[in-house]
């Protein structure tokens, strides 16, 4: 089928299948799944600038469904999500402008492809190493698996950073933290959203857990809430630049919405470090797909 807006020919069942797979993964791990959907779309033959915009569009609707599920389970810190928005929006806009600049110099496929690989390999390696370490801590010290972290010290140091204004997030168990740390987390992930067309969850979730010290199950829900906002804003700003094929996004969303339902529900059967260990495999798969298309 040829999608008339982008002029791209791709099997709609393949797109719906990609959507379903990333929906399950995204709902389960509390991420939008864009870092898998993007490489899969690119691999299926969609030009990179349409991958970035369309991926964000499909993620917006799907993340709303998953975020509503997590909110019902009490896993969303609304205040933390809303405070992060300022940094996120600035980052998304900055990233979208970088994509436009790369389009002008005809380097968008290569530069974004390589950026994908680098970011995914770093995140996968770090998360795998940390979750294995945390699982050893759980076994050795008999801690509650939901709260075990290998990098508890980083979060403690960030909370001691006395850079006003200071804010608190009782729903996440954060008594006081600098507003700039929260905005910084939002900006970094927003920039990735704008450049790579991902929700940024695969970076935001580790940052929420390790840097701000948010419990894993709250980080999952809050991350999805933030993805709704960042992907929604990213959709609009990329659509204005002609990078979104909304028909393609709706087909992907058909599979993704169903997958997200199943994924979000299944998180209740797994504990923190195990979720993170499973999560660590996904970035490597995404990196391999991008590398296969580039070379």
């Amino acid at each position: 089928m040829t999608f008339p807006i982008s002029g791209v020919t791709v099997d709609p069942f393949v797109l719906a299948g990609i959507g379903f797979a990333v929906g399950v993964l995204g709902g389960f791990f509390g991420v939008g799944g864009g870092f898998i959907a993007g490489p899969l779309m690119f691999w299926a033959g969609v030009p990179m600038h349409f991958v970035v915009g369309t991926d964000l569009a499909h993620m917006t609707g799907k993340s709303i469904v998953a975020a509503r599920r997590h909110r019902a389970l009490g896993h969303v810190d609304i205040k933390l999500g809303l405070v992060m928005v300022g940094g996120t929006v600035l980052g998304v806009e900055g990233g979208a402008r970088i994509v436009e600049m790369l389009k002008r110099i005809e380097a968008v496929e290569t530069v974004i492809g390589v950026a994908y690989i680098v970011v995914l390999v770093i995140i996968g390696t770090f998360t795998a190493w940390e979750s294995l370490h945390a699982l050893r801590v759980v076994r050795r010290d008999r801690l509650d698996a939901r709260e075990a972290l290998a990098f508890d010290g980083i979060a403690r140091r960030v909370r001691r950073l006395n850079l006003p204004p200071m804010v608190s997030f009782p729903a996440s168990g954060i008594a006081t933290v600098s507003l700039w740390a929260v905005l910084g987390v939002g900006f970094i992930t927003g920039l990735l959203t704008g450049v790579l067309g991902v929700g940024g969850g695969f970076v935001r979730m580790p940052l929420l857990i390790y840097v701000l010290g948010v419990p894993t199950h709250v980080a999952v829900g809050t991350d999805l809430f933030e993805i709704v906002i960042s992907a929604g804003f990213g959709t609009v700003t990329h659509a204005l630049k002609g990078n979104v094929d909304i028909l393609m996004a709706l087909v992907m969303q058909t599979g993704a919405a169903l997958g997200a339902q199943l994924g979000a529900t299944s998180t209740r059967f797994f504990a923190g470090p195990r979720i993170r260990l499973l999560f660590s495999v996904l970035p490597f798969i995404g990196a391999a797909l991008v590398a296969a298309r580039l070379w």
């Binding site: 609707g61 709303i64 659509a239 996004a249 919405a257």
Partner: peptide, 21 residues
């Protein structure tokens, strides 16, 4: 009209997620 397209696109996506849910 990319502005109208962006607005309609967002509405279609959000409707698919929220209204149907």
């Amino acid at each position: 009209d990319l502005i109208a397209y962006a607005a309609v696109g967002l509405v279609l996506i959000v409707a698919q997620g929220v209204v149907l849910d």
